[in-house]
Design a protein around this nucleic acid. Sequence first.
RNA 1: GCGCCCGUAGCUCAGCUGGAUAGAGCGCCAGACUUCUAAUCUGGAUGUCGUGGGUUCGACUCCCGCCGGGCGUACCA
Length: 590
Amino acid sequence: MFADGVFFINLNLEKMMLPVLQQLDAYVRAGIKSAYGIDADAVVTVATNERFGDYQANAAMGLTGAVSAAQGSKANPRQIAEKIVSMLEPNEMIEQVSIAGPGFINFKLSSSWLSQAIESADNDAHLGVPVAAESQTVVVDYSSPNVAKQMHVGHLRSTIIGDAIARVLEFEGHHVIRQNHIGDWGTQFGMLISWLRRSSIGSEAHIADLEHFYREAKKCFDEDKDFQEESRATVVRLQAGDPEVLAAWRRIVAESRRHYQPLYERLNVSLRPEDECGESFYNPMLESVVTDLLAQGLATESEGAIVVNVPGYDTPLIIRKTGGGYLYATTDLAAIRYRSEQLHANRCIYCTDSRQAQHFAMVFDTARRAGWAKDTRLEHAPFGTMLGEDRKPFKTRSGETVKLTDLLDEAETRAYEMVSQKSGDMTEEHKRAISVAVGIGAVKYSDLCMDRLGDYVFSWDKMLSMDGNTAPYMQYAHARVCSILRKGGVSLADALRGRVVLSTPTERSLAIGLLRLGDVLALLSRELKPHVLCTYLFDLSQRYNSFYEQCPVLNSEPSQRESRLALCAATARTIALGLDLLGIAHPEQM
RNA sequence: GCGCCCGUAGCUCAGCUGGAUAGAGCGCCAGACUUCUAAUCUGGAUGUCGUGGGUUCGACUCCCGCCGGGCGUACCA
């Protein structure tokens, strides 16, 4: 009996942990099943208008066809809705169910259930968000800077979006393997190494110098036949593992790492040196990629090159050049095979520019047909191109690129001006720290908050904006919560233990906002779109700011004070978690 | 030529698997700091959802055509 009781409690807790949308969906689905014996989507959404309730199920209208066919006469969606509602089991979560219009089923959540759900989230280390039922191994490929080149604003999207995706999947309980597929291999190193040797430049070359040397080497390569020969010979020596050339190459890679690793730390991007797995890593596997595809009959020789014909495309995928060299398609195929067979990835996500969409579609198709991704779902999470002010693609070579370092410096400078102006008495050191959090946060958020598919125009003002739907808005809401706790001498841990009673519409609205987190994260991990989390955090912060204006916390009645403190604490944790998942800092004061 | 992406308020953008009167921010107008941070809040104005058809009880959402912009399209990544 005791065991049964425990089992029951556990079951209940688990049920309570499921996000609202998922719970309601299962609930209405069961109602449809008992009404009509059909397993149909309940089509539950957040209410389109608060007037109607908190959530709504739109399944009834869509069921008219199936029901009419089953009963042999024309069915009325309104009656279908009524029948479904009559079959719904009583549920502590729901206070009121009503039917409106053609057959909308509207739900008003019970205030006491909402209170309990907030309390339960407050006392849960995972904020009430369930861990994935099946933990997957997920490879996330992102950032991928080019060695010997400085990172510029064009690298921001992959780095930031990929990192947010990796963090969210990890939070959902998956085993995430970050892969920084750096561009550390290729013919350009022949040029660069030859040039360095010619100019007798030692190992002390800085990244900015390397970039400069690269341009000079390229120029020389285009003009000087002897240098071309020498560069080609150097590439061959590099690929053959010549110690001297290899050492020069290693110095270049190391210097590049010294450049981008601090940038990752500055950007609060979770990539570490161990996540680095560049093009050179796959070099030894390239030959077998080609021979295996040939052996399988998937690849053929064409005009001296080895190609794979992909159904639906009029041009083939080239995997070996006429001269015998390999291409990035070959490397990507090797990477897929490695990630699937060695890393045992269930899911392999590529966060790159959308211009590579066709390339990945062809590579994925080839890998699948070759049987190299048997238990691996291959997904491209493309993002739009960054355009210049003239609305033309932001090209690297034209020299008008904005270096990432410069962008971040400018962001911190602008934030510092803002902090100096708005934050009162604060030590210089503290102001600096806040400026970093606010400035870098603003830059990252401006990139994360838009649907990744669209192209966008680079603009300093847009990147560094700090009003409205920006990171500082969320950070400010968070700082306001912390300020209340500080003023009241209440620790977060104590506030979290409070009993919640929702006595005003504003508090209720905040509570409903808080409980949407799990559904939002589930959507994000499905669609790989961090902007849904941004939209959510902005909405939640707005709810909190309204609450802040309308509901005094510290000066209210003891029970109300306790409840409001608990709501504050839940908000602080939710915003902090959301910003953490986006890789954005959340200072306690600003 | 073929393929993919985009077109929503003056500007920048949301709009979840088709659902109720299409929403924010910025900007504009009018208010709110003797009370927990005004980087905030409250209220107001603004739309042929590029366009023409089709499917549907219902289309910003799905299908087809067209217009406009972008990208990709055999040895760069």
